[in-house]
Computed example of a mutant assay.
Amino acid sequence: METLLTNKTASLTELRDPKKVIEQAGDRPVAILNRNQLEGYFVPASAVEKISYEAATSADVQEALRKRRKLIQPTLDYLRDK
């Protein structure tokens, strides 16, 4: 089973009424499920407003890429030929 990044969930059917999902979510993201499979996350604006952002330096980006190199290498190989 996939690990969800939030403890609130809703189905695609429930998302037909997004206002209701937002009200129930409060300030938390909601995992959207389709037949118990994660489709994505619905994040209310109130949740985003609480997040503080800090620009990444070039060194930060290079370090993150270095750490994920094994995982992203197949994608890099594919894109090299395009």
Rank of each mutant, 00 (worst) to 15 (best):
E2V: 14
L4F: 09
L5R: 07
L5D: 07
T6M: 06
T6G: 04
N7F: 08
N7T: 14
K8C: 02
K8H: 01
A10S: 11
S11K: 08
S11M: 09
L12R: 11
T13Q: 12
T13P: 02
E14H: 05
L15W: 05
R16H: 06
D17P: 01
K19H: 09
K19W: 04
K20T: 06
V21H: 02
V21R: 00
V21E: 03
V21P: 00
V21A: 00
I22P: 02
E23T: 15
E23V: 15
E23N: 15
Q24I: 07
Q24W: 03
A25Y: 05
A25W: 05
G26H: 08
D27S: 15
R28S: 11
V30S: 02
I32M: 07
I32V: 13
N34Q: 13
N36I: 06
L38E: 08
L38R: 10
G40C: 08
G40N: 06
Y41A: 02
Y41I: 04
Y41K: 03
F42H: 01
P44A: 00
P44H: 02
A47S: 11
K50A: 14
K50S: 12
I51T: 05
I51P: 03
A55E: 11
A56Q: 13
A56K: 10
A56Y: 06
T57A: 02
A59D: 08
V61Y: 05
Q62R: 10
Q62F: 06
E63I: 08
E63W: 04
A64G: 12
K67F: 07
K70L: 01
K70C: 00
P74H: 11
P74Q: 05
P74D: 08
T75F: 09
T75G: 10
T75N: 05
L76V: 02
D77C: 15
Y78V: 12
Y78M: 12
L79H: 01
L79P: 00
R80Q: 10
D81M: 13
K82R: 04
K82Q: 03
K82D: 00
